[in-house]
Structures are given as structure tokens and as C-alpha cells.
Design a binder for these strands. Structure first.
Ligand SMILES: [Mn+2]
Ligand SMILES: [Mn+2]
Ligand SMILES: [Zn+2]
Ligand SMILES: [Zn+2]
Lengths: 153, 153
DNA sequence: ATTTTAATTGCAAATCATTTGCAACTGATT
DNA sequence: AATCAGTTGCAAATGATTTGCAATTAAAAT
């Protein structure tokens, strides 16, 4: 019943076949650009911007716009989770099947390095916040910021 | 010594004179547009977008760009706090003198109504996150989302 | 009160991330 | 191989925010 941070960072990478299977089930086509994008996401442990994905792609593999569209689609299917580090650029991370991808990060404000965080906002406090204000379906967006070891001059 | 959520939502509105005083001390000019902007912020309990501030301003009082510049300046002086509700538009809230403005909100995902939240991410957990990852100066950005009473069909 | 000077403003144009229109193209199915 | 909806590339549109610059003005100095 816990809905928060069920995300397991220890889970092994998903097979590409499992990913394309999910697409197929949703009546989506497995195209070159999509396979390439999934392949890149599969190999990255942290959220990537569309531009970063684009840069990793073999030149000319596909248009930036195609990546924007692919991420929209993958997000709608629940295959990727969108993160907002507050810099005006969306980042995406692959989400395991059955996982809602909810989790948080610790980001260095100098070098932008990212650490995946296991902790989550305490459920009972969130439930109280929801109850007190009579809100339903309450969730949260949370990211940590600080100076990483290497950037502490 | 607690740095989190020292913000008091129960504090009374700041006097305009106190606000302009802070500007003057920083060698900033008190102009019509700035006084008008501060006056609007003073009367709003929740974060406002630049466009919302612009809309509240008597027509022709000042240009939208002037508001963008004013908010940048006020943020640098620590007189306003910038919030990110994840919709790609910055929001600003006036911050009391000596207060860093750190706090959170509960936002209705249907009607966008906002509730000021007193709770904060537990300090001891944040400290552990910082220690374990050897980060310093760790802080967080946190907002809650859900359906407000009126929007629960 | 007038001058001086640096800060401020308006307006146009530039940036940046993201979205949209549309015709050409292609993966999956028959 | 024919079919057809889903995809893609490219150009253009959007929307928030920033920047360049000349004209304006608040506040300090005469
Ligand atoms: Mn992550
Ligand atoms: Mn607030
Ligand atoms: Zn969480
Ligand atoms: Zn907090």
C-alpha cells in the first residue's frame, strides 16, 4: 500500500525487449529513433534532458523534435518519469514496469552532478497535510540541492 | 539554529515604508513601478507570476519587462522568494526581513488554488542525506499537489 | 533650486525550451 | 504486395524570460 518511493535503485536495467514489448502492447511502433532513445535511457542512471539524449544519439539518427515527441509519449505511457531540477529544462528517467518512478535527487549547484536519493517525504506528514486541508490525491515534487564533495573548494 | 521553515505565515504584512527602506539601503531607487509592485506583493498571501502582477497593476503603470527586472533585483536582495510550481512560470512571494522565505505549498492540480504549508522536510533526514553523500549546504525545493475540496468532483 | 550621475525604464529584438502544422514516410497488419 | 494509422523531419509558432540601447529620472551633489 505504500505509494511513495517504491522505486528501487538497485533494480537491474530493463531489457530493451521488455521496453519495446511495452510499446507494442500500447499499439506504438518500434522505430529506429525510439529504440535508440530507449537504449540511451537504459544506460543512464540519472535523468537526461532531451538535448542530452540528442547529443548521445549517433548524429542524424533523429531530429530533436522527435525526441520531444517520444518523451511525451513515453511519459504518457508511464515508461519515463519527468523531473524538474528548477533550471527550466525537463529531464527524463526510465521507469521500471509497475513502478510509478516517484523518487528524488540531490543535485550539485556548481557542477550539476546528480545523486539518486532513496528517502522520501514522510507519508504520515503528507497524509496530515492532505487531511487538514481536505485535499485528496496528494503527492509531492522534491529535490535536494547542495555542494558535492568535489565542488567544496 | 534551525534554518528550515523559519517562515511565519502568521506574521503581519510588512509596511511599505519598511520595504522601500530596504531598497534605499541597497542604493536602489524607489520608483513608481517598484512601489506599485511591492504594494501588490504586500497584499497577496500566495506567490504571483510576473504576468499576474502585471495584470494587477493599473494599466500602463509599467512594462512587463520592468516587472521581470524588478523581481530579479528583489530576489537578489532577498526581498522576494522565487517558487516553481512546475508549470514553467516563476512565481514570487514577498519575504520578511531576516527571513529566508523557505517554505512550501499545496497546489490544486485542477483549479491551481494554493495553500501555504507550514511543514518542511525533516531536518535530521536532510542532514543524513547530506552526510551520507558528503554534500554541504544542502537544502530542498518541495511542493505538494492534489485536488482541493472544491475540485473533488 | 539646479546640476550631475548612475540607476531605471520602455520598446524592440533576441534567447531558449517546447509545441505545432503538415506533407512525406514507414512499421505493422492483412 | 497493398493498406493505413502512427511517425518523422523541417519550418514556423509559442511562451517565458532576457538583452541592447537610447531616453528618462530618482537621489546625491552643488
Ligand atoms: Mn533518478
Ligand atoms: Mn507561500
Ligand atoms: Zn517522495
Ligand atoms: Zn522545507
Amino acid at each position: 500500500m505504500k505509494k511513495n518511493c517504491a522505486h528501487k535503485h538497485t533494480e537491474k536495467k530493463q531489457e530493451l525487449a521488455s521496453l519495446t514489448g511495452r510499446l507494442r502492447r500500447e499499439a506504438r511502433k518500434i522505430t529506429g529513433p525510439r529504440a535508440a532513445i530507449l537504449e540511451i535511457l537504459r544506460h543512464h542512471p540519472h535523468p537526461l534532458t532531451n538535448k542530452e539524449i540528442f547529443a548521445e544519439l549517433p548524429k542524424g539518427e533523429c531530429d530533436l523534435v522527435t525526441i520531444y515527441r517520444a518523451m511525451q509519449m513515453l511519459e504518457k505511457l508511464g515508461m519515463v518519469k519527468r523531473f524538474d531540477f528548477g533550471d527550466g529544462t525537463a529531464r527524463f528517467e526510465l521507469v521500471g514496469e509497475g513502478d510509478d518512478g516517484h523518487h528524488h535527487h540531490l543535485i550539485c549547484t556548481r557542477c550539476a552532478s546528480v545523486v539518486e536519493i532513496e528517502e522520501c517525504f514522510p507519508e504520515e506528514i503528507e497524509r496530515r497535510i492532505a487531511r487538514v486541508n481536505e485535499f485528496t490525491g496528494v503527492t509531492h515534487r522534491l529535490e535536494f540541492f547542495g555542494l558535492c564533495p568535489g565542488c567544496q573548494k
